[in-house]
Design a protein around this nucleic acid. Structure first.
Length: 197
DNA sequence: AGAGCGATGGCCT
DNA sequence: GGCCATCGCTCTA
């Protein structure tokens, strides 16, 4: 079960945010918890880039989005709708507020922990959504600002030979036309199937 | 299968 | 006071 895991270097994230979002599909996201590693294969991401009204950083630095303006390769975790958490990988250089939202995982590690955290047995319901995957992995505001090379939240793995589908982003009203959502083709673990648009 | 909606709290105008 | 980078439940078909 213990597979080799090489964290992606910070330089990986210091690139065009849309490029990073596409490149993260097929990588491994893991959280080191008290009960052991929990995580899976990244199958869905969204880019929040420059000149993007849907980006939390669009109106400049605030206490909530401060991590987005820090160096690349760190985790930005925020609360949504008062009850869920969402996790991002910060991209680009320091002083720039861009990030990639991790929207869904194919569960591979610590599935029993995820079942307990999520209160369901259905493997397709464990990590198929940004709020769901944070609940499954136990990601909270305490993980905000963590180094994705050191943890508790880490991203690694090889560049995967996978087919990636690009679609428009979900759950936003501003800049909704941008094709900045990326899905692993034919994955069973997406938050929603890619729509043709 | 799809629409509607409540939960619940921080951030915005 | 309204808007959210959500989710799970209910209602209708």
């Amino acid at each position: 079960m213990a597979e080799p895991f090489q964290p992606l270097p910070h330089a990986f994230y210091n690139r065009d945010t849309v490029e990073v979002a596409r490149d993260l599909i097929g990588r491994i996201l893991v959280r080191e918890s008290a009960t052991g590693p929990v995580g899976g294969i990244i199958v869905e991401t969204e880019a929040y880039g420059p000149d993007d009204p849907a980006n939390h950083a669009h109106r400049g630095p605030r206490p909530r989005n401060a991590v987005m303006f820090g160096p690349p390769g760190f985790g930005y975790v925020y609360r949504i709708y008062g009850m869920y958490w969402c996790v991002n990988a910060v991209t680009r250089g320091e002083g720039t507020g861009e990030a990639v939202l991790i929207r869904a995982l194919e569960p591979t590690v610590g599935i029993e922990v995820m079942r307990a955290n999520r209160g369901t047995e259905d493997p397709k319901a464990l990590c198929s959504g940004p709020g769901r995957l944070c609940q499954a992995l136990g990601i909270t505001g305490a993980d905000n600002g963590c180094d994705l090379m050191k943890g508790p939240v880490m991203i690694g793995g090889d560049s995967a030979q996978v087919d990636v589908v690009e679609t428009t982003r979900i759950g936003i009203t501003k800049a909704a036309h941008l094709p900045w959502r990326f899905c692993m083709k034919e994955s069973l673990y997406l938050s929603r199937p890619p729509s043709p648009q």
